[in-house]
Design a protein around this nucleic acid. Structure first.
Lengths: 166, 166
DNA sequence: TTGGAAAGTCAACAAGGCTGACGTAAATTC
DNA sequence: GAATTTACGTCAGCCTTGTTGACTTTCCAA
């Protein structure tokens, strides 16, 4: 991998060795990625499922339950259990839809925003440290590979979210 | 936080926007990363926990239960349940240690090797496609950021595995 | 010889996935 | 206006995979 060359070089990366290293890197890095929020959540009565719901409600305020189901890829019953506790605890508000009253538009309350902050601060801190250590070029490559690794449907979700706010 | 700066270019990347995109990229990509093996596993009676055990036993044949516990980061009881089914089903063999008879040296049987192949072929195929699509430079960055994202202890595990086989 | 580490086992529990069935209100279609 | 579909909620029950605590057996090493 030292030298250069063109069409050929990419093939040099595709040994089973290289691929396996990538696989293990994903495994260990994902643990690190979730470790900080997990530590915060476990002191409260919440888990990773709550974090995910909070994250995407924060990300797309007013989103519906169906939307959330599509993004999170879980069943209605599973999401409902989590959403129920968040609503009961006053972190999430479910407003009846204006145009379509069957829908529930989900929003974080002040209390919900506060927890979201805490969780994402922790996660961003780690991400920031990793980015700093790796440098800008590495960050670009990191995102490119991750995007290529997603299922097409997930990639659409990811990209639509990107445009969505920008 | 827009401008500023001190260290220079890397700081430009560290907006909350950039960081959040990285966080969501990890979330969606990890789903893709595990999707293919998950599909295979669910047709059998196994889950992700079995996959992880099989992977690391394949990776370090003869490893002990304690070693595996350290790598996987779960409790003895949890691992034992998984290991029990793999041993009973004839995928893993637990040989009494030679020097220390308290230890169990874990190996994949032929049948275990076969499943390992199937699972890692599926996972490598996706990784290979992502690597191809992203290109060598991106792959380099990908691995660099992931490594920086690990907990120090996990990073040691990861790196020792890397040297381990070369 | 005795203390403690390594491994295994039993029991009980929780989070968070899943399926299936059912109910209700609102929107849409015929 | 009636029938159907959609969005959501909920009850019941199941599974995997994580947890803690308590206990035993083996066996190395001081």
């Amino acid at each position: 991998m030292a030298e250069g060359n063109t069409g050929g070089e990419s093939l040099l990366f595709l040994t089973d060795e290289q691929l396996r290293k990538g696989i293990e890197a994903m495994f260990f890095a994902y643990r690190g990625f979730t470790a900080d929020p997990d530590r915060i959540l476990e002191t409260m009565d919440y888990g990773r499922a709550h974090h995910r719901a909070i994250h995407f409600i924060h990300r797309s305020p007013g989103t519906t339950v169906s939307n959330l189901l599509a993004i999170l890829g879980v069943t209605k019953q599973s999401l409902n259990r989590v959403l129920r506790t968040l609503i009961d605890d006053g972190l999430v508000e479910a407003r009846v839809g204006r145009s379509d009253k069957r829908e529930r538009n989900l929003h974080l309350t002040a209390k919900g925003q506060e927890l979201e902050r805490k969780l994402s601060d922790a996660q961003r801190a780690r991400m920031r440290a990793a980015y700093r250590a790796a440098g800008p070029a590495a960050v670009q490559g990191f995102r490119t590979v991750l995007e290529a690794m997603m299922d097409p449907e997930m990639r659409r979700q990811y990209q639509s979210l990107r445009e969505g706010d920008k």
